[in-house]
Design a protein around this nucleic acid. Structure first.
Lengths: 339, 339
DNA sequence: TTGTACGCGTTATCAG
DNA sequence: CTGATAACGCGTACAA
């Protein structure tokens, strides 16, 4: 009930001026020790804390960074936030999160809300709709105002800003090469439709790896799933129709679904068919058998994004007009689904 | 680069006073239509948006709500945030998220940071350490300042505030009764240590259901896990040592681990041993076999929490000093792990 | 119809 | 050593 205490109230109660209180609390030597102590004691008793809104207004800095992501219930994004939060907190920043829900309009609205002084800078990953529309005017508006953006994972080349991505082609290559080295030679890949970047790029890496090893690449080796909710049938069909001895799946869900289909057909993992999945998450760790995956290091990406953003925020403003794209190395985690 | 535009700048550029601009933009009839239009056009051209920090300071309202949760990478918490965010956005509020990482100290620090004017109210779930220590002084300080808190899931009865919980006793009862009705009669429960509320209460429901059916309840039916990282061994031991025909697990991880242990022992699910898990998440849906679970409805809890908080925030301040505890019904989702 | 003054809480600067 | 004043951006009561 006791309303929040302010400098003004302390000043009134102690019959001194506001600026005296302010100085005393900041240990200024301008104030006599006696008075200083008295004021500090009083402030402590009433648990005085400077009002951060007032400070934001005065300093033109909020010490907050805004995140806009498509969904928070996706494990990858949750890990990114976790990384952002960790680094931000270490450096005295708070994190405001908004969700676009893969909607362009909501992404725009949220950006506008946050850009009105709520935060010092953005960390974001574009919504699917934005990727499809290729409309980035909201980002440009923000950067034009001098507010820095760091993009991760789903980025746009049209916007000049720092970017944190993984090299999906290389990652697809790594997964494939790993299977080839294990002696597998009848490979298939379960991917998304091509306009989803990650699916297209990882498939590209898959093809490259095969070709480098002198294999021919055929269409029947590629399954491109459009509707994630009804992927089961298609995956079962894909596996039944082909005599694969190894599969790459561009996400955990496809991998688990494939794993089940394979076992249903009476084949053994990894002896008959091996699997490498992408996006190391909970499913891979707890599926039966556990899945070898290419980890996406969301935590690390988030951490790097936050560090980059804060660096920009705290560099003496505008002398630093160069932008960097950081490629985070993926890491292969071996589990039971590969020999 | 074009710095953010303010009322002041518009006023200068147009050679009028600040208040004229302010009034014009708010469609005041005090201002002549001609001038009004001119000002509005200019403002639109430079994309003027009121600075939210200044508004916060003036109105003593931030239109932001703070969330403190233990971890964001737990699916349940992610769904709660999703629900909070949805409702908050609908009502024009933004969401600031901080993570305690299950640490008491970090919870305290984060609360203090947010309480200094950054937000209008809290939505939170206590860290494990806080539950263990039973130290809630930081919560009390905040409520004493007149800032409302809504707690969910992990709550404290010591703090007067709205609470959103699931009836864990009833849920434990439901899970157990379900197994009994399926003809199982040698039941065990894999739970957490007692100071974690959910574990204790669900265990309680487990006991109640058994006793109501005339079963005796013995200590050996309870496994209480302290360290979630090394639960595997203990769960295997627990299953090997007892001849259960059904298990209740208070979270997905325990359930999946148990499922694997059971299959390792050559027993069949659900014929030999059935499983009911808690917290319906991704794992339950994709484990082999898929798991029957008691769903926790995180999205709904988050939505209710946000609605309650905003209601309190917008009710004419202090006439509303009653607190409510909302019990969200759980729902059993049948899958392959039960007959 | 337009402009001035004030207050939100803080700090920095300058005057006493 | 202490205090008054300005400024951050906004809205509004009051004065012109």
């Amino acid at each position: 009930m006791a309303q929040k205490i302010t400098l003004k109230k302390i000043a009134q109660d102690l019959n001194v001026s506001i600026s005296t209180v302010s100085k005393a609390l900041r240990d200024s030597h301008e104030i006599s020790e006696e008075r200083r102590e008295k004021i500090k004691k009083y402030a402590k008793e009433f648990n005085y804390k400077p009002n951060s809104i007032a400070l934001s207004l005065k300093n033109q800095k909020t010490k907050k960074i805004g995140i806009i992501i498509p969904e928070i219930v996706h494990h990858f994004f949750a890990t990114v936030i976790s990384g952002v939060e960790r680094v931000a907190n270490e450096k005295g920043y708070q994190v405001i999160i908004t969700l676009s829900g893969e909607s362009f309009d909501k992404e725009v609205v949220n950006m506008e809300m946050l850009a009105n002084g709520s935060i010092d800078g953005f960390i974001m990953s574009l919504s699917k709709e934005t990727m499809e529309k290729q409309d980035f005017h909201h980002l440009r508006e923000v950067t034009n105002q001098g507010m820095p953006i760091v993009m991760f994972d789903r980025v746009s080349n049209d916007i000049p800003c720092d970017k944190i991505i993984i090299d999906d082609v290389a990652a697809g290559h790594e997964a494939t090469e790993f299977l080839l080295r294990k002696g597998k030679n009848k490979l298939g890949i379960i991917s998304t439709v091509d306009y989803v970047n990650v699916g297209r790029l990882r498939s590209q890496g898959f093809s490259q790896a095969l070709q480098q090893r002198g294999f021919e690449v055929h269409d029947h080796q590629f399954l491109k799933i459009e509707d994630i909710d009804r992927c089961e049938q298609k995956i079962e069909q894909f596996i039944a129709d082909n005599d694969f001895d190894a599969l790459v799946a561009v996400n955990e869900l496809f991998a688990v679904t494939a794993s089940k289909a394979i076992q249903k057909l009476g084949k053994k993992i990894p002896e008959d068919v091996a699997i490498v999945a992408f996006t190391d998450g909970i499913l891979s760790k707890y599926a039966s058998p556990t899945l070898t995956t290419i980890g996406q290091k969301g935590e690390e990406m988030g951490g790097i994004a936050a560090a980059k953003l804060i660096e920009k925020l705290e560099s003496s403003d505008h002398d630093n007009e160069s932008y960097e794209t950081v490629i985070v190395k993926t890491s292969l985690v071996e589990r039971e689904s590969t020999p």
